[in-house]
Simulated scan of single mutants.
Amino acid sequence: MSRPRTFVPPVGARAYALATARGEFAVIDAPVAAGAEPKGIALLLPGFTGSKEDFNPLHEALGARGYRTVAVDGRGQFESDGPEDDESAYAQEELARDVLAQAAAVGDGRPVHLLGHSLGGQIARAAVLLDHKPFRSLTLMSSGPAQISVPQQQRVKLLRDALAVLPMAGVWEAMQAMEAPEELDEGGPQDLAGQNGQEDQEDLRRRWLGTKPAQLLAAGRQLCTEPDRVDELAALPLPFHVLSGARDDTWPLPLLDDMALRLRAHRTVVEGAEHSPNTERPAPTAEAIATFWDSANS
Rank of each mutant, 00 (worst) to 15 (best):
F7D: 06
V8G: 08
P10L: 02
A13Q: 00
A13W: 03
Y16A: 06
L18A: 09
G23H: 13
A26D: 05
A26G: 05
V27I: 00
I28R: 03
A30E: 04
A33Y: 05
G35R: 13
K39T: 04
A42V: 06
L43Q: 05
L45R: 11
P46N: 08
P46D: 01
T49L: 15
S51M: 14
D54Q: 11
P57C: 09
L58Q: 11
H59Q: 01
R65T: 02
Y67W: 15
A71S: 12
G74I: 12
G76H: 04
P83H: 13
A91I: 11
A91L: 15
E93C: 04
E93L: 14
L95G: 01
A96F: 07
R97I: 08
D98M: 15
A103W: 03
A105G: 08
A105T: 07
V106F: 14
L114H: 05
L115G: 07
G120Q: 09
I123P: 00
A124M: 12
R125T: 07
A127K: 00
L129H: 05
R136F: 12
L138M: 10
S143G: 00
Q147W: 11
V150P: 10
P151E: 00
Q152S: 05
R155P: 01
R160K: 11
D161Q: 06
D161A: 10
V165P: 01
L166H: 14
P167Q: 00
P167K: 04
M168F: 02
G170F: 08
W172D: 01
A174L: 13
M175V: 13
Q176Y: 14
Q176P: 10
A180C: 10
G187M: 04
Q190Y: 10
L192C: 07
L192W: 12
A193D: 07
G197Q: 04
Q198G: 05
Q201P: 03
E202F: 15
D203L: 06
L204T: 02
R205T: 05
R206V: 09
W208F: 15
T211A: 06
L216T: 09
L217P: 03
A219W: 14
A219E: 08
D228Q: 07
A235E: 07
L238H: 03
F240K: 00
H241F: 03
D248L: 09
P252T: 05
L255G: 01
D257V: 10
A260Q: 04
V269D: 02
V270M: 11
A273Q: 02
H275N: 09
S276W: 09
P277I: 08
E280Q: 14
R281F: 01
A283V: 12
T285A: 10
A286V: 03
W293Q: 07
D294L: 12
S295W: 15
N297S: 06
S298C: 04
